[in-house]
Simulated assay, not measured.
Amino acid sequence: MKDETTYRIPFDVLESFMTDALKGIGVPEEDAKICADILITSDKRGIDSHGIGRLKPIYYDRIKKGIQNPVTEFEIVKDTFTTAVIDGHDGMGHVIGKKAMQMAIDKAKIYGMGMTVVRNSTHYGFAGYYPLMAIENNMIGMTGTNARPSIAPTFGVENMLGTNPITVGVPSDEPFPFVLDCATSVSQRGKIEVYDRENKELPDGWVIDRQGNSRTDTKQILIDLVKGEAALTPLGGIGEETGGYKGYGYATFVEILSAALQSGSFLKGLLGFDANGKAQPYHLGHFFIAINIENFTEPESFKKITGDILRDLRASEKMPGQERIYTAGEKEYDAWLDRKDKGTPVNDALIKDILDIKAELGLTQYQFPFEK
C-alpha cells in the first residue's frame, strides 16, 4: 500500500530479507536470525531509528569495509555466580548482547540477580530488546552501552561521550510492559538519520557547533558529527538552566559501566579510527542486569502494583489541549497494534538501500511492492 513515497512490507518478509542479507556477507545463519529478530522487533515497536534503516549503513556496510567481524567470537573472560566479563572480539553486537543478557537472566534465576559486562563489541541494535528478554522471565531488566563520541559535556563543545542509553524494562499486568529506552542526549544519531531520510531540519537545541550555537541543518550535521565539528546536547539541553548537567552525568555513568568494569575502550577510543585516521572497529562496551522479582515478592503482586502506578499516572489531570498521558512502552504498543497487519513503512531512502542489497547479493527471491 502506497502513501506518498512510503510502502509497507510485512514483518516476516522484511525479517527474512535481513537474515539473507546478513548471511550473504558472511554472518552465520543462526547469528543472522538473531540480528534480524532484533532489527525487526525495533520496527514492530515503531522505533524506526534502529530497525531496517540501520541494516545497510551500520551493519552491512561495516562488515564489507572490514571494521566489524561477521563471525562472532563470544569469549567469557571472567565468570562468577552472579557476574561475568565478556569479550566480543568486534563481532555482531546483537549476538553478543543477546547471549550476554541471557547469561544475566540465567544467573538471576538461581541467585536473584545477574550482571554481565562486555568489551570489544559493536552496535547492538535497539537497547530495549534486552530488558524485554528479562521481562519474559518475570524479571526487571537493565542495559546500557557506550558509543562513538557525539555528546558534548555541559559547558563544552567537543563531542566526548556517546549517546549512552540507560534502558530499563519492568513487567506489569497490562498488555504492554514499562520499557524506558532513552539516550542520554536530547536526541540521538538514529533519530537525526530519520529526519535526514525525510528531508527535515532538526529542532533547535538538539545539536551545537564549535561555538556553542544551535544547528538544524540535518544532512551536514550527520557529516560534522563524525568530523567533530558538531555535537549532540545532553538530556536537558544546552547549559545548566534546563538540567543539561543531568544528562551529562547519566551519560558519564553509562560510560563508566560500559568501560571500567570490563577494562574496555572509552570516550575518544570509540571513534572508529586509529592514530593514522584509518577506520577500525569501534570496540564498544555494554552492561546487562537482570533482577528476579520472585526473590523480593510474588511476581503477580509486583505486576499488579506496577500496573496500578501506570494507570494512575495516565488517569491524572491532563494539560489543557491534551487528550492523553502516556507511560513508557505505551506508544510502542500502539505502534505494534497499527503495524502488525500492515507491516513496516519504508520510504525512498530505505527502498534504495533494500534494492542495492538485493542487487549486490542476487536476492531475486524477494519481490517488493515498490518494484511493481
Rank of each mutant, 00 (worst) to 15 (best):
I151S: 07
D348Y: 08
K331H: 01
G362Q: 07
G97N: 06
P171I: 04
G212E: 06
P345T: 10
I325L: 15
T233E: 00
K358T: 03
I221L: 08
D204S: 14
G236A: 10
I289K: 07
A183Q: 02
F287I: 06
T154R: 07
R148S: 13
I291K: 11
D353V: 04
N295G: 14
I221A: 06
L232K: 01
F126G: 12
I47F: 10
M103F: 14
P57S: 12
I110S: 10
T218N: 12
Y326K: 03
I293L: 08
D79M: 08
V157Q: 11
E371D: 01
G307H: 03
A260D: 01
D274C: 12
P175W: 05
R311V: 02
G243Q: 04
T5A: 12
I354G: 14
G264W: 00
Y130A: 09
G88H: 13
F288H: 12
V254M: 09
E193H: 04
A275R: 08
T145K: 05
I47L: 13
V179A: 04
R324F: 02
P175G: 07
A231K: 00
R62P: 06
A275V: 04
D334Q: 15
G46K: 10
D224V: 02
E323C: 10
E15S: 13
M160E: 07
K65I: 00
E193I: 00
A259C: 11
I151F: 03
P10G: 06
M160W: 03
K78C: 00
G329P: 12
G51F: 11
Q102V: 11
I354K: 04
P299W: 08
K109M: 08
F155M: 13
K23M: 13
S16F: 04
M142K: 13
G362T: 02
K278M: 11
R197K: 14
A108V: 04
A230L: 03
E30S: 14
I96E: 12
A21Y: 12
S258H: 06
K191C: 01
T163N: 06
V207G: 05
F273N: 06
A127N: 09
I38G: 09
A84N: 01
D341P: 02
T41H: 10
D348N: 15
F302H: 01
D173F: 08
K268S: 09
